[in-house]
């Protein structure tokens, strides 16, 4: 069994004499400052409102949406799994009987309070029907009143996914 000896720093006379170490640090910060002020265009930052980020991954958890079945009707069966699993308790569901014969239940009301939501993605994990997703890549949500941040069923259904429809279409366990 070999022993790995880790060298300890800070005990030599030069290091205990602070000033040389301070000088090294000062050279680094001033070097960055000088290089950047001579050519501000070379600083690698995103000019955000004009240029949008293009490196959002497929796993990014953005604004929620409710998915559709192949026939275009709502995929949600109002099983309350997402609302039960939600740690922030931001999902409000009211169920009603589904009369078009496709399924037994559907939500009459499905609301997400974005101000309560912590974007953990547990609702997506919990959903047995792949009816709720967070694959929209929408990261900026603004409003003038608190009521603007409560997303209704219609809004959530109208929100488009960021990826191809074949990929994002609900397979529909019940169809």
């Amino acid at each position: 069994m070999s022993t790995h000896i880790v060298p300890r720093h800070g005990k030599s006379f030069k290091e205990r004499w602070y000033l040389s170490a301070l000088w090294v640090g000062f050279r680094t910060t001033f070097g960055h400052f000088w290089r950047n002020i001579l050519n501000t265009n070379a600083i690698d930052v995103l000019e955000y409102p004009e240029v949008m980020p293009n490196d959002i991954t497929a796993r990014y958890r953005g604004h929620h949406r409710l998915t559709h079945r192949d026939d275009g009707s709502i995929a949600c069966v109002a099983c309350f799994m997402c609302a039960t699993n939600c740690p922030a308790q931001c999902i409000t569901i009211e169920a009603q009987a589904r009369i078009d014969g496709i399924d037994e239940k559907e939500p009459r009301r499905f609301e997400i309070d974005l101000l309560e939501c912590i974007f953990c993605g547990y609702c997506v994990e919990a959903c047995p029907c792949d009816a709720i997703r967070m694959d929209t890549n929408i990261f900026s949500m603004v409003g003038n009143a608190r009521s603007d941040f409560i997303r209704t069923k219609e809004q959530l259904l109208a929100t488009q996914g960021a990826y191809a429809p074949t990929h994002s279409q609900a397979k529909g366990a019940h169809t």
Binding site: T29, H32, F33, N36, I37, T40, I43, D44, V45
Partner: peptide, 10 residues
Amino acid sequence: RIASMVQNRL
């Protein structure tokens, strides 16, 4: 501004 220049920001 100087702080941001030191940290490679704008």
